[in-house]
Design a protein around this nucleic acid. Structure first.
Lengths: 196, 196
DNA sequence: CCCACCGTAAACCGATCGGTTTCCAAACTC
DNA sequence: GAGTTTGGAAACCGATCGGTTTACGGTGGG
């Protein structure tokens, strides 16, 4: 009763942390030791290390999204909700142990775009773009798809810079996103119904 | 006489290619085999694999810069010269085997920002920002430093997106860079002396 | 009480890791 | 042509890789 976490959960948790902190080349032995699970159990829960990479990324994806994207209650306007993503990103970058967006990092490390982990990464990156696009549609901008892609690019570029420089970048992401929204006419006040 | 390339050059070349294509976790044996150099020779030319990573990155850095940045003769205006970087980036992304900016990829893979390879990566990323900044100073914009950082972020964000999606992104980088330059008043015609 | 099951620890597998050493043939010097 | 230096091929080192198997201490139901 005291331990509700299944071996599977413990493995996914440890994998999410160690793959992110040390890269996907961390050994299976170290992973299992950190999870407190035997290799035998691991290999009857997951077909291979590659599958564990993909599944751990997929299992942590929603939590990572929730950490970035405001819920339906947060933020009154699309602009605020979009900018909230970049504000939360700055908090993450400030935290020690920041190693960039886990999806981008994993895709970079895996190299092979057909690796199951790369497919998962692609999926969740698309979901961030989808979030931007949905908000932009609500804001009534002209080309929500293109602007959503641009916001995603700002997001990942900011993250990449923080990784290379090994430090957060005060306000740059928020500033750039705000500029993009300004240029598209997405004001703080919710006058979303002009482009019709 | 027929072979001018020294073992050191061959090692740096093979390292640059294999580290980029397969990641820094490629084995030393494979590297030496590709370079046609014995491990013994390699280890008396480089103290360790880590040093080879850093030195190969440093040795290929200038060529990578030259591939992106126009020479003094190319482009008449700062705007054209800056946009040329993003146009050349698109060509690189279109080419098969594109794995993102080698500096960002290496920094992501190494994780440790104090790794000699990470230091080199940081240095060359700064040089791209410096190039942008120098052009923006010539264009007479208000805050060339901030805008140079923003252009670098667009550059790396575009690259990251191409890696995750495993395909180039037609015109997005150039479009975003052009928008940033537009907003800063950097026109195609070289009327650079207005902000004084 | 016995048996069947579960999952852990650990041995084991061949391969590869980063790095060192031995051996030897070719290319130098004198 | 003898002696020295060079560098490649390959053995070797202990450690670790991804993955499998064995052995054993529970823990359940009959």
């Amino acid at each position: 009763m005291t331990t509700q976490a299944t071996p599977r959960d413990r493995l996914l948790d440890a994998a999410g942390e160690l793959f992110y902190r040390d890269g996907v080349n961390i050994g299976v032995d170290a992973l299992c030791k950190a999870a407190g699970v035997s290799k035998k159990s691991m290999y009857q829960l997951f077909r291979s290390k590659d599958e564990l990479i993909a599944e751990s990324l997929a299992s942590h994806g929603p939590a990572y999204q929730r950490m970035l994207e405001p819920g339906p209650e947060d933020g009154t306007t699309p602009r605020e909700r979009i900018l909230a993503v970049f504000e939360r990103q700055e908090q993450l970058m400030t935290a020690s142990g920041f190693r960039g967006c886990p999806f981008v990092s994993t895709a970079v490390e895996l190299k092979n775009p057909e690796h199951p982990g790369s497919v998962v990464a692609r999926h969740f990156k698309q979901r961030l773009t989808d979030f931007f696009q949905a908000e932009l549609v609500a804001a009534g901008v002209d080309d929500p798809g293109a602007l959503a892609v641009q916001l995603t690019i700002v997001f990942d570029g900011t993250s990449a810079r923080a990784v290379v420089r090994a430090q957060a970048l005060a306000g740059v992401g928020v500033t750039m996103a705000a500029s993009l929204l300004d240029a598209a006419g997405v004001r703080a006040e919710a006058l979303a119904s002009q482009a019709r």
